[in-house]
Amino acid sequence: MTAAPADLLIDQPAVTDGAALWRLAKESKTLDLNSSYSYLLWCRDFAGTSAVARGEGGEPVGFVTGYVRPERPRTLLVWQVAVDSAHRGLGIAAALLDGLTARLTAEHGVTDVETTITPGNTASERLFASFAARHGARLEREVLFPAELFPEGAHDPEVLYRIGPLTDVTPHSAH
């Protein structure tokens, strides 16, 4: 498992975290920024399949949003991962991902993880490749949404990363 700062608390997001998650996504400069309203809804309706990392004062310093796919109830789709720039490089994203999948494996029997990454997002590519390696899982990639499907025209393709089956999912060391 990954090491994360000892003072890190990983738990489920609350509606009151929605604005902070929106700010983290905006400041990432790599994520597609959704409306602030959508982050409030996400923290209400998908809190059980998402995770937030809290710093010393309880303020979110990172998050993972996801959901269990209705047609594939053992698959977690990771929607977004973001960590505050002052807290990057400390293993927070990996700890969030490990903690969330451990929880969802125990609660829902999750065996697989999917996410999409745009080409050139090396931080996300490394995060999910190392996640697959840590959990003894196969990693497959294929274009899910080609660029021409996006109506705004300037969007890169979204490459689907399919990871599974997970063979070593134990709770992370962060508390």
Rank of each mutant, 00 (worst) to 15 (best):
F63G: 02
V52M: 00
T170G: 07
N121H: 10
L96K: 00
A154I: 05
K26N: 09
A6Q: 03
A106G: 15
G55S: 13
T167Q: 15
G66H: 00
H87T: 11
Q12H: 06
A3G: 10
L40P: 02
A25W: 01
F46D: 08
R88I: 10
H155I: 06
T49G: 13
N34M: 14
E56A: 15
L160E: 07
G55Q: 09
P157K: 00
R162T: 13
Q80S: 12
T122S: 06
T75P: 12
A147S: 11
E140C: 01
D156Y: 05
F63P: 01
L100R: 08
R126M: 03
L104S: 08
D84H: 04
S36I: 04
A123T: 09
V169R: 00
A20R: 03
L77G: 11
D45L: 07
A174F: 02
R162E: 11
G120W: 07
A123K: 05
A6Y: 02
R141L: 13
L40D: 09
L144D: 10
P151I: 12
E27Y: 06
S124T: 02
E152M: 03
Y161H: 09
T111P: 11
V113S: 05
F131D: 01
L144A: 14
V110F: 02
R69Q: 08
A86S: 11
A86D: 11
P157G: 04
L160A: 07
S130D: 10
L127Y: 12
A102C: 00
A93C: 09
L166H: 14
N34F: 13
V169P: 02
Y161W: 10
G66S: 03
H87K: 13
I92D: 04
R126H: 01
D156Q: 08
A123V: 09
T16P: 00
A133I: 01
L24I: 04
G153W: 03
G136H: 03
F150G: 05
W79P: 10
K26V: 11
H135A: 02
S173C: 06
P157H: 03
G62D: 08
A20N: 03
V83I: 01
L160F: 07
I163F: 10
L90A: 15
L100N: 12
L8S: 09
N121G: 09
L160T: 04
A102H: 00
D11A: 02
I117H: 05
K29M: 14
R134W: 01
G89N: 00
W22F: 06
A53M: 15
V64F: 10
L76G: 11
E158T: 01
T101I: 02
E27W: 04
L8A: 09
A47K: 03
L139C: 07
A25V: 01
V15C: 09
A95W: 06
G48Y: 15
G62C: 08
P60N: 12
A137S: 14
L104N: 08
S130Q: 05
S173A: 13
